[in-house]
Design a binder for these strands. Structure first.
Length: 111
DNA sequence: TGAGTGACTGTAA
DNA sequence: CTTACAGCCACTC
């Protein structure tokens, strides 16, 4: 059953990301107690189940996984969630970064 | 047991 | 601006 691996924790943290918000791999890793586990988070997302909103996980710079087909899907899903993109194609980390467990302070809460 | 790998991050040139 | 290098940790074979 559920292995007590970090992956499972990362999945749990990813599920806690509210819609319309994004988190960086490093941010997610720290949420599970890993200081430098950005790669682990990324790897976890790579094998993430369908019930995990991996599309809400982006690079620390708000950049998507350019070079992979997943980027297209991710970008589309984020747009569906109401994520704000910059003209560079990056996510607006200034407004959509997952600051923490705040639930009820979402800017699109009234949508 | 050991080595390889990865959807990352930050600094440097 | 882009490209390159090194550090990092957990998982799989």
């Amino acid at each position: 059953m559920a292995k007590d691996g970090v992956f499972q924790k990362i999945y749990g943290a990813a599920r806690r990301i509210p819609a319309g918000r994004v988190a960086s791999y490093g941010q997610l890793a720290r949420s599970v107690g890993m200081v430098n586990g950005a790669r682990i988070a990324g790897w976890a997302m790579m094998a993430c189940p369908d019930d995990v909103p991996a599309h809400r996980v982006v690079h620390a710079d708000g950049r998507l996984c350019s070079g992979h087909q997943w980027e297209a899907v991710q970008r589309r899903l984020l747009a569906e969630e109401g994520i704000v993109f910059k003209q560079n194609g990056n996510v607006d980390m200034e407004k959509c970064t997952w600051e923490g467990e705040e639930d009820g302070a979402l800017p699109f809460e009234q949508l």
